[in-house]
Each structure stands twice: as structure tokens, then as C-alpha cells.
Design a protein around this nucleic acid. Structure first.
Lengths: 205, 205
DNA sequence: GAATCTATTACGCGTATGGGGTATTTTTTA
DNA sequence: TAAAAAATACCCCATACGCGTAATAGATTC
């Protein structure tokens, strides 16, 4: 029996969802909330398995709500159930701790399935949304650095100093220095820290 | 009509897949390859819409193959079709440019669906695999740093020097140094570069 | 209420770092 | 084959950096 809770301000939607879920064998839905504030108050007592969470809510947003709830009740899985499909809503939700992300036009059968999937350790979402997630951690631009420079940048990221790098790649400290100057120029930075930041931001290493 | 190509070393599997796909209305599969090398040679001429790619291949791996093919034929979508389900294979595939990721036990109907999804701009994958992807860009451990320290770490990442930071947060340069020392101790690092690296790796900022 | 820990403030020392150059050899590309 | 890019090596110099040490105010714990 999967215990489900709902946080959704629209009374109609909230009750319909609860009815569908509670009326399906293997599911139970006895707790619904119209805002995050009341959910945060009550959830620690009932501790459901899965929570369906809207984003647009009066007061605290669903994203902020998940962030707070996840801190204390980290074992509860949250599924975003929202009309928003913009990149920011999706990424912020997942970063806040949402496990699944569905849009409100998801058919009941699919919704129930998604709840099952989350319960079994999956992250249900449309393939369109998955694409956004996949794209987000792929480096798009190709590195302007040479192989040698990339090797040195990697070592810069590890905090190795000129001499250590020089010894490691069997060249003089002067050469390392020259390479690093070129790296900085290509990346448009003026310090190690900025170079490291750019290395990670642009996924150069 | 979605034009599909297959790269798969097992003759049995390759031919079965080709038959299924080519025999389905709306799909065409006239080109199959038993390794990446021959695929790289021929694909630029036929330019399919979608390529099903195995990982374990004689010679070049499917991951390496995608990396090379994506450079020239960036508009082709690749679906990984493999037995591997380890995190590394998944992430390396997606980083190399794969759009979808399926295991070989995927039923034919689901496979055809996945091809359609990719063609429509989605990223088909099991919810279990999606979970791994989602988890990968979520910060798991909570920051050991104070608010002040986090603020300073952020500025360190931007390459701001002591004086600039000091002026920005209205304290002396000495104080900034002390904070940074504490940051380094907490993060177990000994330089800006390492701190910046850890900040991004652990998603502290 | 005392003890402890943490965050914040502060100073001096030696050195690695980054900015400014210049130059030769090898490899890649046009 | 000429030109461009990459890799190698060297110099000077101001300073930003990391390390050691220490005091004070606030929060937390016992």
C-alpha cells in the first residue's frame, strides 16, 4: 500500500486526484493540503511515501516547500505535478529534491504508474522533460584548449603549483607558466580560481 | 518516415532489430553496421534520423563512436541500446551525445516508441535511469560552511581578491583571510583552485 | 553559571602567482 | 611549401596568497 499525500490549492483538482488515488487498489490518499505551510506542519506526523506537489501555491511555492520538507523528511519522494514546463521550474524542482516531474495533463493511469515508479526508485518524467535534463549536463561548446593545455588545466584544478606540474609533465616551470598564460588568455580569465570555475562551468575537464 | 541505422556486433540481434523496425509502418532501416569504424565511414552519406548504438563493440566503443559521429553529424539522434546499466556507462554515453538510453531487454513496442520520442525531441530512458541522471546533478551533502563563508567562497570562485571581497562585505582584508582559512580547513583544501573545484563538485554554490 | 565552540576580527612573513615581455623548435593547417 | 599554431624556454617585478599565531564576541552546551 503506497501512502500518498497531495499539496494543491485548486479544490476541484485536489479532491479529484485524492479520489482517483484512494480508489485504486494498492494506493491510499487520506491527506491533502491546499498550501505548503499546512503540509509542513502535518506531514512529519503522517509521513507518506509519496507527495504530489503543485508549484504555484498561495504563499510558499511548491519548490520552496520541497526544499524545506526534504531537509527533515528526506525519505519521502516528491512528484511535481504542475502546468509549468519551463526549464527553470524543472531544474529548480529537481535541485530542491523532487524525484519526478509531471504535467497536469498526465492521464490518471500514467499518474498512478508514476507514483508506483517513484516508489520503486525511479524518476518518472516525460521524455521531453528528460531531454532538458540530459541537455543541461552536456557540454555544448567545444574546448578552445589544446591537449597539453587541458592536461595543465586539470592539474591547476587540483591545486598543483607550477613546479609540481612541470615535474609531472617533464617540462620546465617556465613552460608551464607559458601554457597557463595561454590558457588564461583563451578562457578570458586572470586567475587560477576563474580558470577552474570556467573549467567546470564549460565542462572543459 | 523515420530513417533508422543500427550499430551492433551481434548478427542475430542486429538483423532482428532491423527486421522489426523496417517492418513497421513509418520506419525504415536499411543500414546496419557491426562496428563504429564502418558506421563512421558510411553514415555521412546516408544520414539517418536515429541511430541505435551498442556500447560493447569490437574496436571502438559505442560511446567513443557517438563522440566522433556527433562532431560531424550533430543533427543525428543516438539511442544507446545496451546491457550496461552502470552509472558510468550512462553518464559517459549522455556526455558523448546520446539522446536516449535503453537496455536490451526493452520490448520491441517500447523500442519503436522510444525512436518516435527521440524523433519528436524527447530523451527516452527508464525511470530508473532517469533517477540516476537526476540524482547526479543534485547536491546531496549539506554545506559545512556558514553563510558568511559561502558568500566568500562564491566571490573566491569569481576570482575576487582579498581586498575586493573585504570592501564588498565591509570587513578588513585580515578578516577575509581568516574566513578563507576556515573555508579551506572545512573543505580540506589548501588553495583557491581546490576550493573552487570542491565548490562546484559538491555544489556548494 | 561555567565551559566550549564558532564566528569574527587582526597582524607579519616568505613565496607562489600573474602581468609584462622575448625567442626557438616542432607540429599542424592552409 | 608557406603560414599559423602549439610547445618549449627564459627574464623581471609587484603583489596576492597561504600559513602561523592570537584576541574578542556570541551562541551553544553541559
Amino acid at each position: 500500500m503506497i501512502n500518498v499525500a497531495i499539496v494543491e490549492d485548486d479544490r476541484e483538482i485536489r479532491q479529484t486526484l485524492a479520489l482517483i488515488i484512494d480508489g485504486t487498489p494498492g494506493f491510499s490518499c487520506k491527506n491533502t493540503f491546499e498550501d505548503c505551510e499546512s503540509a509542513i506542519e502535518t506531514l512529519p506526523e503522517i509521513v507518506p511515501d509519496v507527495v504530489l506537489m503543485d508549484i504555484n501555491l498561495p504563499g510558499m511555492t511548491g519548490i520552496e516547500g520541497i526544499r524545506i520538507l526534504k531537509e527533515r523528511l528526506s525519505h519521502i519522494d516528491f512528484i511535481m505535478l504542475t502546468i509549468q514546463e519551463d526549464d527553470e521550474s524543472i531544474f529548480d524542482s529537481l535541485l530542491a529534491g523532487a524525484t519526478g516531474y509531471l504535467t497536469k495533463d498526465t492521464p490518471p493511469a500514467d499518474l498512478l504508474n508514476a507514483i508506483r515508479e517513484v516508489y520503486k526508485g525511479g524518476s518518472p518524467m516525460s521524455t521531453q522533460i528528460a531531454r532538458k535534463v540530459v541537455t543541461s549536463f552536456k557540454s555544448d561548446k567545444k574546448s578552445p584548449l589544446t591537449e597539453r593545455e587541458t592536461e595543465i588545466l586539470q592539474r591547476l584544478c587540483n591545486g598543483e603549483n607550477y613546479k609540481v606540474i612541470a615535474d609531472a609533465i617533464f617540462v620546465s616551470g617556465h613552460t608551464v607558466r607559458a601554457h597557463i598564460k595561454n590558457i588564461y588568455e583563451k578562457l578570458h580569465v586572470h586567475s587560477r580560481a576563474e580558470a577552474v570555475k570556467k573549467a567546470f562551468k564549460d565542462k572543459l575537464i
